[in-house]
Design a binder for these strands. Structure first.
Length: 1128
RNA sequence: GCGCGCGUAGCUCAGUUGGUUAGAGCGCUACCCUGAUAAGGUAGAGGUCCCAAGUUCGAAUCUUGGCGCGCGCACCA
């Protein structure tokens, strides 16, 4: 027997008990066990950072990540779900620094790298509990106990293997490049990290005069005007660049013959004049090429000795000034500035290329060397005394002031632009800085990455060629190394003497190196502190202590480089590193690569999506592994925004903690909100109201049907377990074995209709879910539940309330039993269909409907059943269509009434329907359902109209979709012709001949087939009618005295029922009624229908007279009535 | 600046390869039900489909150009 349930379920409490039960029963493990050996569905968990709090956005990701594996498992696939945690990197270090109250690298070193690393490792798990709680609470089934962790030795060693592969192939190299440099943190950042830190800021924008030098090396009155937004780079100026084929002009303030002369690009001269609010005259004009080679005086003599420029020999013969000379460069544009570009090779990528090109012109060793007045910590060195020891950006003001004092500042203003800051310390501006750094040659694999990408199924599709494709197109080499502490150490050991390097693939390889020393540093530390994690042996500082004999030079040692790597490489390596492959885990890797499905939010395009694709393409691209890898399908989720449509942020408090949502509304409500609310890639606005509303919209509606079923099943003794010995999976064929079960064909029409809808929806949902369209599938499901609740249950009430039992005993009412079986099968099937979406609620329903009745004979969890794919044999398409017509007719009838202000309580004589597409059998079918329609619409009589022309006009319309291609430009004419034609004659011709000829206005004819036209039926004015595409419904609005009387009575009954409720009467309580009215009509009506009133209101007696004082006066359609109600 | 996405009812969003009367949920109004009941149901009102031009017999849908919002990119010296 089923357990009773509350009508008002407490979903959060229900979910908590289900979650506990899953844990206790190991239901997830069971679901895997059931599919062992089946075709795999491979899922990769993109590792969340274990060092931050989860927010509602993570709930979305985790819901999607749960949905498809659950679905595929129910569909028969084996889907292991291995959790993972991202544990390395800057976020962790920054957090630890905050805790220690320190910021700079020097402070970390002073604190000690060893204790710092320990702190990092401890800090990683700070929010672990929150994450695990969230994961379980939202119903994300994933194996947390076997989670991969990026700092674990096995993971690190896999990454080492990957890096060694790249190194051996020459794809991992050290380069001297201009990188985005986080000075306070002392490390370079990858383009991905830089991209996350752009902020709009106002920087000083200065126009600076670079006086040209005369032959003697003395500054002239004529200056180049250069523009920069980074004044602090001026002390390191090395060249000035112009565009050779661009026109330059010499400007002088009008009317001041001795005034200073400024050289700027001609197209920008007017702009400069405007800024300076001065009138200039052009005193000379020449192409940029005329300036090339000229020497100038740099703004600061940081690196220069004043006087005649120092020159050196060129490769091509002759000589040239080494620096502070005008060069030609193509990248000079007239978009902004002056057309003269200040070149400081230390602080700009293009600037650096100028230096490299210049160096090539000079004899080896004679050319310009890089000049740089800034130390790695972002402060000026002593060579620039004015700013020595101060952070460069803080010196902008002093530099500008100094330039002005020396008459070199032409103009100054504020310039608003986006500038990168450190993504983890967002008050630290990044600077471009020359640095030795390790790079992966990803740009060499651009084509392969694009080819791989082309085979991936992206959802939404535009990611492929849009955002992600573009990102790949503009690929630059991956700046891999970080001069930091908490990360995977770069496994490269360098010969002290020769500088030659080699990569190490595993810790064991390292220990086996000849002359290995230093491994004992960790052993000793461990002995002193037994709690020390063994995984730290492959981390700084311990790993740095390990050295070995150089194979490159005798008596020389190999020492590890100091860097760790970008933590994005860790996560990108997870497809193999999660198994420790290739050092171990071969079977797992072979079976679990590539992934069928991954999903993360859009911000991972440049993050995890890219790091995975890049690493996989570089490592496995040539290995004959067919693209795509390492993932085949990727759902890119939109970002979740706060309540105000802005980015979620803790400081704005525009969202709630997930735990709060779960406690208030429950996980299923949130899941349904995510899955059914919008396409997953639209950016979704956090809305407490919307989450709340997702409960009545789906969960509560389903629950109400379920609860309705339970109430009556218990009353009538319907218990499948008592009549079915082998329940199997409670599929249709299983239920067929039950005693008292009748084949669907033998059941009533409503039952056949319900099962048709059920199976049609199951089939449609399967198609959609296979195509990763859960949004569409959820819509189907929602419509189905609506059909059960609002049509099947409503129209079946009579059967459930009819006399007799449903227990298979002698009192059994077979039609009632049919209704139970139909509703039971429907609910059981819906539980399965909805299980991947709302796993908790469906589990509760399953455990009662299946578990309570069958005990251990049936799967104990809905998640251990097969997903219903729909039985086509049970779908009666004609019936589905016709039932839709009945529902439509009912709606139209109500609409017609509403238009005439004839409330449903007022009975009417007749309703007539005209079908737009007259199919003889549909009409007959409809007529046979007259009772149903009469009941729904409260009318006495229902007919399919015999004389439609009385009420409606028919119009023959072209089916544009079909005729358009046929007729082309003649279409409008044909449409006019059809509109003017005699519809009846036309229809006749079409019916008889299957085609008709219409003459077009302006000559010519067109032949239309029966299938080329549609018939629109329109109600004639003057009738109480409503129309849809399917039918016109006309109601008789004339009221007879009898009908009016009935209407009055129903009105009175309604008033009494409302009173009963107001009096808080139980629905079994009987009452005494006393009426008093001065209206003879009303009194007559009431007396006439006394019996009806008694039965409807459970009145033991009805009297007319003087009701006791306090009886409420009512107005019944204009008739006064006082009613007294007393409990018998 | 370049790129991607979005712009549809008061709100949140659907809208399939261009096709006739552009939909849903919520909210609102009216009504119904009162044996699922602090629920449930039905109907109605509400739309310059951001603007403009173009392609087409026909555009919410395709093209181009604007405007607005979000995001991404980065030689902005």
């Amino acid at each position: 027997m089923f357990e009773p349930v509350r009508g008002q379920p407490d979903f959060p409490a229900l979910e908590a008990s289900i979650a506990a039960w899953w844990r206790e029963r190991g239901t997830y493990q069971q679901s895997l066990e059931r599919r062992r050996g089946a075709q795999r569905f491979v899922f990769f968990e993109g590792p969340p950072t274990a060092n931050g709090m989860p927010h509602p956005g993570h709930c979305l990701t985790r819901t999607i990540k749960d949905l498809y594996p659950r679905y595929r498992t129910m569909r028969g696939q084996y889907c292991e779900r291995k959790a993972g945690w991202d544990t390395h990197g800057l976020p962790v270090e920054v957090e630890v620094c905050k805790e220690l109250g320190i910021h700079s690298k020097a402070e970390i070193e002073a604190y000690g790298v060893e204790p710092f690393i320990h702190k990092c490792q401890e800090s990683v798990w700070r929010y672990m509990k929150e994450w695990e709680t969230l994961t379980e609470r939202i119903g994300f089934w994933i194996d947390l106990s076997k989670a991969y962790v990026t700092y674990h030795q096995s993971f690190v060693e896999s990454v080492w293997w990957a890096l060694a592969e790249l190194f051996d192939k020459g794809l991992l190299y050290q380069g001297h490049k201009i990188v985005w440099w986080w000075a306070q943190g002392g490390t370079a950042l990858s383009s991905g990290e830089v991209g996350q830190g752009y902020k709009e800021v106002a920087d000083p924008s200065v126009f600076v005069a670079f006086p040209l030098l005369d032959a003697a090396g003395a500054p002239m009155n004529r200056s180049l005007v250069a523009w920069t937004t980074t004044p602090w780079t001026l002390p390191s100026n090395q060249f000035a660049a112009v565009k050779a084929d661009l026109d330059y002009v010499v400007l002088r303030e009008a009317g001041i013959s001795e005034g200073p002369e400024y050289i700027v690009a001609e197209p920008l001269s007017a702009g400069l004049a405007e800024k300076l609010k001065k009138e200039f005259e052009i005193i000379e004009r020449f192409p940029g090429s005329a300036l090339v080679g000229r020497s100038y005086q740099p703004p600061f003599d940081t690196f220069r000795t004043p006087g005649r420029p120092e020159a050196a020999a060129l490769v091509a013969g002759g000589s040239d000034a080494i620096a502070w000379r005008v060069v030609a460069a193509d990248f000079v544009t007239t978009d902004s500035g002056t057309g003269i570009v200040h070149i400081a090779p230390a602080f700009g990528e293009v600037d650096y290329t100028v230096l490299v090109a210049e160096q090539a012109r000079f004899a080896p060793g004679k050319g310009p060397t890089l000049i740089n007045a800034v130390a790695p910590d972002g402060t000026f060195t002593d060579v620039f005394g004015m700013g020595s020891g101060r952070f460069v950006k803080e010196c902008d003001r002093d530099i500008t002031r100094d330039l002005r004092a020396r008459g070199l500042l032409v103009h100054q203003e504020q310039y608003v632009h986006d500038y990168p800051f450190c993504w983890r310390a967002d008050n630290d501006p990044l600077i471009q800085y020359p640095r030795q750094s390790w790079f992966i040659r990803t740009s060499q694999f651009r084509e392969q990455m694009l080819a791989n990408n082309a085979r991936i199924d992206w959802l939404p599709e535009h990611i492929k060629d849009g955002r992600f494709g573009n990102f790949l197109e503009s690929n630059v080499d991956w700046a891999l190394s970080r001069e930091r502490y908490w990360g995977t150490p770069l496994p490269i050991w360098v010969c002290e003497e020769t500088g030659q390097a080699e990569a190490v693939r595993s810790y064991a390889d390292l220990l086996a190196k000849p002359g290995m020393q230093g491994a004992d540093v960790f052993t000793k530390a461990k002995a002193a502190n037994p709690d020390l994690s063994d995984d730290l042996r492959v981390h700084k500082p311990y790993i740095d202590a390990v050295t070995y004999d150089s194979p490159f030079a005798k008596a020389s040692r190999m020492r590890r480089v100091t860097e760790v790597i970008d933590c994005w490489f860790d996560s990108g390596a997870m497809p193999f590193a999660q198994w420790g492959w290739p050092h171990q885990g071969h079977a797992e890797f072979d079976a679990q690569f590539p992934a069928d499905f991954i999903s993360e939010a859009i911000d991972q395009t440049r993050g995890w999506f890219y790091s995975q694709l890049a690493i996989s393409t570089l490592l496995f691209g040539d290995g004959g592994r067919p693209y795509p890898h390492p993932f085949k399908t990727c759902i890119v989720l939109g970002h979740m925004l706060g309540e105000d449509g802005q980015k979620m942020s803790k400081s704005k408090r525009n969202y709630r903690e997930p735990a709060e949502i779960f406690d208030k509304f429950g996980a299923d409500a949130l899941r349904w909100f995510f899955l059914a609310g919008q396409a997953p890639w639209t950016s979704i606005r956090y809305s407490e109201r919307a989450i709340k509303e997702s409960i009545p919209e789906f969960l509560l509606r389903l629950w109400n049907v379920y609860s309705f079923f339970l109430i009556y099943a218990r009353i009538d003794g319907f218990d499948p377990g008592a009549v079915l010995e082998e329940p199997g999976m409670l599929e249709h064929t299983d239920l067929a074995r039950a005693r008292g079960w009748r084949p669907v064909a033998a059941r009533g029409e409503l039952d056949r209709w319900m099962l048709s809808e059920l199976n049609a929806v199951a089939a449609a949902m399967t198609v959609k879910m296979d195509a990763y369209d859960h949004f569409g599938a959820a819509h189907q499901l929602s419509t189905l539940v609506d059909a059960v609740s609002n049509w099947f249950v409503r129209r079946s009430r009579d059967r459930f309330w009819a006399a007799g039992k449903a227990d298979g005993g002698p009192e059994t009412n077979q039609e009632k039993l049919d209704a139970y079986w139909t509703l039971y099968e429907t609910l059981i099937t819906i539980a399965k269909l909805a299980a991947p979406f709302v796993p908790f609620t469906t589990e509760a329903i399953w455990r009662n409907l299946a578990g309570s009745s069958f005990g251990g004979k049936v799967a104990e969890s809905v998640h251990l059943t097969d997903f219903p794919t729909g039985d086509a044999a049970l779908v009666d398409h004609d019936l589905v269509r016709r039932m839709a017509v009945v529902r439509d007719v009912s709606s139209l009838g109500r609409a017609a009434r509403a238009a005439e202000k004839l409330k449903v309580r007022q009975p009417l004589q007749k309703v007539e329907v005209i079908l737009a597409e007259p199919r003889a059998d549909d009409a007959a079918w409809l007529i046979s359902h007259a009772d149903l329609v009469c009941d729904e619409l409260n009318v006495k009589q229902f007919e399919v109209c015999a004389d439609p022309d009385r009420y409606i006009t028919r119009q023959v319309l072209p089916d544009l979709k079909k005729l358009g291609p046929k007729l082309g430009k003649d279409l409008p004419k044909a449409r006019d012709a059809l509109a003017k034609a005699d519809a009846a004659a036309l229809l006749h011709a079409l019916t008889v001949h299957g085609r008709a000829e219409v003459s077009l206005p302006g000559g010519g004819t067109a032949v239309v087939d029966k299938d080329d036209v549609l018939v629109r039926t329109t109600a004639k004015p003057g009738w109480a009618a409503a129309e849809s595409g399917r039918a016109v419904v006309v109601i008789a609005k004339d009221l007879t005295p009898e009908l009016i009387a009935e209407g009055l009575v129903r009105e009175v009954v309604h008033v009494i029922q409302t009173q009963r409720k107001a009096l808080d009467l139980d629905f079994t309580d009987r009452i005494e009624l006393v009426f008093a009215t001065e209206s003879a009509d009303l009194r007559t009506a009431l007396e006439q229908h006394r019996h009806y009133i008694e039965s409807e209101t459970l009145a033991a007696s009805v009297h007319f007279g003087t009701p006791p004082a306090g009886a409420e006066p009512h107005d019944i359609d204009g008739h006064p009535l006082a009613i007294s109600i007393t409990k018998s």
